[in-house]
Amino acid sequence: MNTDLSAIRQIRLGDELRAWRLENNRTLVDVTAGLKGWNAARLSRIERAHQSISAADLATLLDHYGVAGKEREDLEGLLGDGPSKRWWRSLDFADSITAAFAEYLDLEADASHISEYFPAAFPGLLQTEGYATEMIAASLSAPNDEQIEAATELRLRRQSRLTDDRPLNFEAYFGEVALLVAGDKGILADQLRHVIKVSQYPNVTVRMVPLSAGRPGILASGVVLMRFPGDPEDGFVFIEAVGGMLPRRTGRDVRRAERAIARVTRCALSSEDTITALERKLEELT
């Protein structure tokens, strides 16, 4: 991804360029034919936000497309954002981070507001080291000790978004099942203490969906809805799936995620009642 453009804007620029091409019934080969310095592979990478594009190159491409007026202004305006915060690149194990997860990390770093729900575990931004290690070790990928350690370190570093100089507004929802499943009771107790502590941050809301909510409130999978500065009406969605979180970029997907989060919100306990439930469970464990 581009190091000079925020993740969300680079993705949207690529999506818009691809949409223009498809609406005009043009293939990658068609639109790059005769365009010096361009080929189908390069344009494909730009459309998928896997390669950067400079303002000069974008102007050349739009000239070639014949895009002008407001449409052109909107596309060129997507280059006018601040730099992407690709902090994870400095990690020793950065090369092992998949392209899909790198996209997630970039967007998480750019987001100003995240609403996240997981039916059977506490969201990653709330996890302690012990709980994260336990969860990662139990994943379908069967990671080795080195991979578990690296993934745990990455998960903990991500939590700086809750306390940095531009703290993320974080709405965290989790299912009551998270209180009932534990490989180690001591780890779960520490996790509960941590969630109770973090729930006191002014930018963090923690709410539990009780089992009594039934099927209407307990979604079959996790969902993450991200919002970005200067763009409160749009967003980016990730849906939990086998092997990781799948991105969903369209406005329709955002609206679906909004409805799903609204259902969860209606069925969840209040923040106060959630803390009471956590404290009650902590008493049972200790």
Rank of each mutant, 00 (worst) to 15 (best):
W38Y: 06
D30T: 02
T3G: 08
T27Y: 13
Q10G: 15
V29L: 13
I46W: 09
L17Y: 09
R21V: 02
L5V: 10
R21T: 00
I11F: 05
L13W: 04
E16N: 12
A49H: 04
I11V: 11
S44Q: 11
V29I: 10
E47I: 00
L17M: 05
L22H: 13
R21S: 02
V31I: 15
A19R: 15
K36T: 11
I46V: 15
R48C: 13
Q10H: 11
W38V: 02
I8P: 02
A7L: 02
S6R: 15
T32I: 12
E47H: 02
A19P: 01
N25M: 10
N39A: 13
L28H: 11
E47Y: 01
R26G: 00
G14H: 06
L35Y: 08
W20H: 00
R18D: 10
E47T: 00
R9V: 07
K36E: 13
N25P: 02
E23M: 09
D4A: 14
D15F: 03
K36Q: 10
N25F: 12
A40T: 03
G37E: 06
A33W: 07
L22I: 07
R26K: 15
L17D: 05
L22Y: 08
I8H: 08
R9F: 09
R21F: 07
N2H: 14
N25D: 15
A7P: 05
T32Y: 09
L17Q: 06
E23D: 14
W20P: 01
R48T: 14
G34I: 04
N25T: 07
R42P: 00
Q10M: 12
L35E: 05
W38G: 02
I46C: 06
K36P: 07
N39S: 08
I46L: 07
L22T: 14
L5E: 05
L17E: 03
V31G: 05
E16Q: 13
E23G: 09
N25I: 03
W38R: 00
R12T: 06
N24D: 01
L35A: 08
W38P: 01
N25G: 09
E47D: 06
L5Y: 03
I46G: 05
K36M: 09
N39L: 08
D30C: 07
T27S: 15
S44A: 12
T3N: 13
S44K: 01
Q10L: 15
D30N: 12
